[in-house]
Design a protein around this nucleic acid. Structure first.
Lengths: 288, 288
DNA sequence: TCGGATTACGTGCACCGTAATGATC
DNA sequence: GATCATTACGGTGCACGTAATCCGA
């Protein structure tokens, strides 16, 4: 068996051509390399070098050996990289969601109940989420339909209804409810990165009507500084996210009503029992 | 970089389940293994073990790591094996021949002129020899036709003529020359492993007429102990291989006359110049 | 004379083993 | 008490560096 430090020095020599240069590359002294190369030949049991009195170089066998040594070093490094990545993955729980609010809820829940885990989360559409669960990209996902897939364990999470918060003096403010079609001529403030909600507006409202903000701060400031209408939901309203001088009116279209489902692989259901249990509590709390 | 001795001890542990058993397998003490496994975890930078106070076992990451470690050990051993094999091959010159006499001649010549080389030699037919030269199975070959192949360097070596040594009282002994067809009713002593010569008899003489001996000793004893005819050649006769009470008569069929060619790859011609030169001398000596 | 390999020699660290301790069944 | 891991401690081999030597262009 040949230790790595020898292979490392050997490859350094193969790459530099002289022991002197190799010794710099490998951070050892020149005499140390002389010894190491002798030891290496001894361990292989065959000559690897052509030596003239003040010159040393690889012979044919040495060149082959250097190739193998390089590969062995690479394999060693890859082993380390892979194991570290595996460990990191095993400490990380990846959560995908079709919408930001339930994602935030579930991230909070996981943080509380699995404090040893790193959390990686992102928004994605249902198709990608379900595929992601199956190929272990995600361990937990929030989708807006029950896929009735035998590989997946699904639990109803909570519902969210779209509202529009509109200036109390606006003619539409008098209405008890609205349809998306009623909003065509408005200019409406909206957050970017709201997942599935974007799909709902797509094709129903003209591009020009949506004042999409990439940062929540910008969104908030514009809400304060203007009397522009903005999209809201019953969940946010329940948490107090309303603005003075505006009234919140529900949107009646069926697609403005979402039901979220929390899902994981059937086979991993037990690992996330505590999360699912807390989600059931959450459901009662929010709905009740 | 993680040294091999650690991976070795790690794999020993993975295979035995306890540090105690692993310490026997790896020929180290138990405390030494404790330290090594700690060091290994430190080098990987991630936990590899589940530890209860008097029990240690691989966690999920550890199992993966053990797999990789095992592969790394295998790769290291394969590297050594391959390099040793390469070295051995580079010290060995493989010679193939269609007939035993020129093979013996050329082996002797190589032994004299390249004493540092190990020699591996065997009999084969021309097709296999030429293929063998091209795929580096053979470095030198003796064939009985000049293939006029641009990849090969070919030099006429010497000729050999088939004789039959027959009891001086046998009717055929009076003849100046014979044809194979004349021998149909004889029972003839013959050596096995005579390469291309076998092909010459094939189909020309009945199976039953050939008393094939696997060992040269058995052949010699039977020659002495009987008055049976046996196959001979001008070359052997020139070296004094004759038997008392027998006369040697040449066989006239054209296929009973062989011309040998010494061949190597055109690209390797220079390496074997001394052998080819001596073969030219040999030719003069034997023919002259 | 300089670049580069080797030899000579002393040192320190890292790995090792023995012995003792701790923990769990 | 048996089994097994860990800690403590002392020893030693070996890989290292410095310095000196040797060799060839």
């Amino acid at each position: 068996m040949i230790e790595y430090y020898l292979l490392q020095q050997f490859v350094a020599f193969a790459e530099s051509g002289t022991l002197l240069k190799a010794s710099e590359k490998a951070n050892v002294s020149q005499p140390s390399l002389t010894r190491s190369m002798k030891k290496l030949e001894d361990l292989f049991g065959v000559p690897l070098f052509d030596r003239s009195n003040s010159r040393i170089s690889l012979n044919a066998t040495g060149k082959i050996a250097a190739e193998y040594a390089r590969r062995a070093l690479d394999a060693n490094q890859e082993m380390i990289d892979f194991v570290v990545a595996f460990d990191r993955k095993s400490r990380t729980i990846s959560i995908g969601s079709c919408a930001p609010l339930p994602l935030h809820q579930i991230v909070t829940s996981v943080q509380e109940r699995m404090p040893e885990k790193a959390i990686s989360s992102e928004l994605a559409d249902d198709g990608k989420l379900i595929r992601g669960l199956k190929n272990h990209t995600y361990q937990l996902a929030i989708i807006h339909e029950d896929p009735s897939d035998p590989d997946l364990f699904c639990q109803r999470y909570f519902e969210e209804h779209l509202y529009i918060s509109i200036d109390e003096n606006h003619p539409l403010a008098k209405r008890n409810s609205l349809y998306l079609d009623d909003l065509k001529d408005l200019r409406i403030l909206m957050n970017a990165n709201i997942g599935i909600w974007n799909n709902i507006f797509e094709g129903r409202l003209p591009e020009s009507s949506l004042l999409t903000q990439n940062s929540f701060n910008a969104f908030s400031e514009l809400v304060q500084a203007s009397s522009l209408p903005f999209f809201n939901t019953d969940q946010y309203i329940a948490m107090g996210y309303e603005a003075p001088g505006r009234v919140s009116i529900p949107i009646n279209d069926p697609e403005a009503h979402l039901t979220y489902w929390l899902a994981c692989l059937e086979s991993e259901q037990r690992s996330y029992r505590s999360i699912f249990d807390s989600a059931r509590g959450n459901l009662i709390k929010i709905i009740g």
